[in-house]
Design a protein around this nucleic acid. Structure first.
Lengths: 227, 227
DNA sequence: CGGCCTTATCGTCATACTGACGACAAGGAG
DNA sequence: CTCCTTGTCGTCAGTATGACGATAAGGCCG
């Protein structure tokens, strides 16, 4: 064994859909380097801790979401020398998709954490500390791609949701309007995507809509398509 | 900065298609731990080295393929405590797709490296050292998935190839026969997938076949479909 | 209460793509 | 020359998609 020891961190890209737009949870750094800049939440992996465990711990610390039901997946690992001025740090990025939280940022240990529109952040490559702009870019692209062929959009929704709410997720993530009628047909006819609960709601206004929950499918055949 | 230093390694899943089957390059370990067992090639990332640079260096050492044209992509990172009995080692896995090499394993520094059928290896969870069985599983699934929506299959082919050779790649990777006529139609009608060179060859026997090279497309719309 | 607004949901139709498979082309082997 | 092998083109029916009309069923307001 002859290796250079390095720091290993888990960084989180926590996405949600709020007010019709895709938003990411960022923290404002209180200390150098990049003091005062926005950054993705994250922290070092502890000695006896698995990578995903570290990511879930950070997620719980930042959002209060300790549930195992939160969708969390590894996106990529970034290890360019010099990406962290403090030393050689390799960062494993995890993507978390959470529903619109009642409590914006509960139990956060970061003094200033807040939801920021993804479009705004991606539009300004200098907004984020470290190489977090690239990490966010990659993570968002992953999320966009996965909506096509997986039922992952439901991870942004509450346990029960209407088809329009689900459509709202697609529109927010893809930044593109979808035809309500074709979307409805596609979603309800794709085996295992959603299952009706039998109940209805009028919370979206207009005619009462059926409520659905996530189905059992893990992939969508055939996929939904972006423009 | 308060972190536990860890070793960071780059491991390679080098895949090729030979004799109609998907094969992976493995080395037989000469030292403990797991002495005598098969393992994925790999090694520690050097202090001033980027992760992908480390992976390309290992690839060149194992196969003699130093070309930038070899397709190399990061798959995932594995960091379970205890996955390496020597200490805390986090491993970043890279998937490499190479054409059928004239020289099987040139310039290898590993005494015994060889191509092994992926199906055989995956069928025996105890064949590989460390958590390499899982890593290989993930990498192969990534490769299978990417053939659907990207022109990546061409990475397994020489610069010029026939449609049947390309089909052979799909059949080997997916382990499934495809209809030659429908495959031909699909590939030649998908914009930017392949471009004819104008030449023909009879190396596959039968009627002379047109030769093609990779096109410029990066994704296939719509994708090819597995069963 | 009745009309209007909003969203939900169903239906139609032309077009595109796919899977199954017939048919013919064009070399090589014997 | 004939057969065998592989390449390439075509046909046809079934399925999915995009565009969009039409109707359903609540809430709101006067």
């Amino acid at each position: 064994m002859d290796f250079e020891p390095m720091g290993v961190a888990a960084d989180l890209i926590i996405l949600t859909v709020r007010d019709g737009s895709l938003q990411v949870l960022l923290i404002r750094r209180g200390i150098a380097p990049y003091k005062g800049r926005w950054a993705l939440p994250g922290g070092f992996v502890r000695p006896a801790e698995d990578l995903e465990t570290a990511a879930r711990r950070e997620l719980a610390e930042e959002t209060g979401l300790g549930s195992d039901r939160i969708h969390l997946e590894q996106v990529a690992t970034y290890g360019q020398p010099g990406r962290d001025p403090r030393g050689r740090v390799v960062s494993v990025a995890y993507l978390a998709l959470v529903p619109d939280l009642p409590t914006p940022v509960a139990g956060s240990d970061a003094a200033s954490a807040s939801w920021v529109g993804v479009a705004d952040v991606l539009g300004d490559p200098k907004r984020l500390a470290f190489d977090h702009h690239r990490i966010l870019t990659d993570a968002v692209e992953r999320a966009r791609a996965k909506l096509e062929y997986s039922p992952l959009a439901t991870a942004f929704c509450a346990d029960e949701f209407t088809i329009s709410e689900l459509r709202g997720v697609y529109e927010a993530v893809w930044g593109q309007a979808l035809d309500p009628r074709n979307f409805h047909r596609k979603v309800t006819k794709t085996e295992g995507f959603v299952t009706p609960t039998g109940a209805t709601t009028t919370r979206d206004g207009g005619r009462p809509a059926q409520l659905f929950q996530r189905g059992t499918a893990t992939t969508l055949h055939p996929p939904l398509t972006r423009a």
